Simulated assay, not measured.
Amino acid sequence: MKILVVRPSPSGEELAKNLNKIGIPSWHFSLFDFYPSTSPISLSKKINELYESKIIVIFSKKSIFYTNLYLKNNNLKWPFHVKYYAIGKSTAFFLKKYIKKKLLFLQKKKTVKVY
């Protein structure tokens, strides 16, 4: 039996490599990867929607990283009035470094407030 690692590159490749090193056969196949946008429909054209949102759902640390990079480079901040929901505890704590407010994340099939 082999483990299929679907985590995005490069962390997914690293995980598969480490698993193989300790004798756990694994493959890496990323369903998606993250890169700074080169699309004409970039965050710069969607920034007003970010600030008009009532809820923002965060799925990954990479999306936080690139959004924060854009905001920082343009002297902007994460909207404070928004309710943030993170998928996963580590993503929630990563986001908390940037927004400095309460946020929610799913843990063991229940919603938990993080302070």
Rank of each mutant, 00 (worst) to 15 (best):
I22T: 12
F29M: 12
V112F: 01
I56S: 01
I87D: 07
V114D: 02
K62S: 15
E49V: 05
R7Q: 09
P25I: 07
L103I: 12
Y35D: 12
S26A: 12
K102T: 14
S37M: 03
W27M: 15
S37K: 01
L106I: 04
L95F: 03
Y51F: 09
I56N: 01
F32W: 12
T38A: 13
P79A: 07
V5C: 11
I22P: 13
L31V: 10
I64W: 00
F80S: 15
H28Y: 06
S30W: 01
Y85V: 10
V114F: 08
K96T: 02
S42N: 06
N75F: 04
Y70L: 08
S11I: 15
F65T: 02
V5T: 07
K97A: 12
K45A: 14
P8N: 01
Y85P: 08
A92M: 00
L15C: 07
V114H: 02
Y66T: 10
W78V: 09
L69P: 10
F105N: 00
K77I: 05
P40W: 07
K110L: 06
Y51W: 03
F65C: 03
A16P: 00
K97N: 15
W27G: 15
V82K: 04
K83V: 06
H28E: 05
L19D: 06
N68T: 07
K77W: 04
V112Q: 03
V6A: 08
Y51P: 01
D33C: 08
L69M: 14
L50C: 03
I24T: 11
N18R: 07
V57W: 10
Y84E: 02
E14A: 13
I64D: 00
M1H: 13
T38F: 13
V5A: 12
F93P: 05
K108V: 08
K100I: 09
Y35L: 14
K102P: 11
I47E: 02
N68P: 05
K113V: 13
K97S: 11
P25A: 12
S37W: 01
F105S: 02
K45C: 13
K61M: 13
L95C: 03
L50D: 02
K62E: 13
K77S: 12
N48E: 13
L43C: 03
I58H: 00
I55T: 11
K109P: 07
S53K: 04
